[in-house]
């Protein structure tokens, strides 16, 4: 049985939404994105950092990200990624989906039925 202290594995598809989230407020290079994910997750989520790059290239090709070469604050040349309009739209969709999904998982895990059942009425009374 694996030790309970090992970092949890990323769910399929969560890498894209994390990259989009991290780039929502700033443009970053790959190394910066990895550091942001690590920091925002409280070092609970660690990824094999090389796996960022195929995702970054795929999202760039889909038009969700735009990339350009710039020099960073240490004067080194790095490729910076930023969100495009499509990327912002995709982020909104993914966040909504994630909220729904995580809420549902949470209710299953906690066995809670306190939340009211969805209203099945078709219109106002």
């Amino acid at each position: 049985m694996p030790p309970t202290s090992s970092p949890p594995e990323l769910l399929q598809g969560t890498l894209d939404v994390m990259i989009l989230s991290v780039l929502q407020s700033q443009s970053l290079h790959g190394y910066g994105i990895a550091r942001q994910i690590e920091a925002r997750s409280g070092r609970l989520l660690t990824i094999e950092e090389g796996s960022l790059y195929p995702a970054l290239h795929r999202m760039t090709k889909r038009g969700e990200l735009a990339a350009e070469w710039r020099t960073n604050d240490t004067g080194r040349r790095a490729r910076f990624y930023r969100l495009t309009t499509d990327g912002k739209r995709r982020l909104a969709e993914q966040v909504s989906l994630w909220d729904t999904l995580s809420g549902a998982v949470s209710r299953v895990v906690h066995g809670s039925s306190r939340q009211a059942a969805p209203d099945a009425r078709l219109g106002w009374e």
């Binding site: 190394y31 290239h57 490729r79």
Partner: peptide, 14 residues
Amino acid sequence: RDIDDEVNFHLSEI
């Protein structure tokens, strides 16, 4: 070349 530079940059930053 860009991919190589990008990967090398990441490794060197770590």
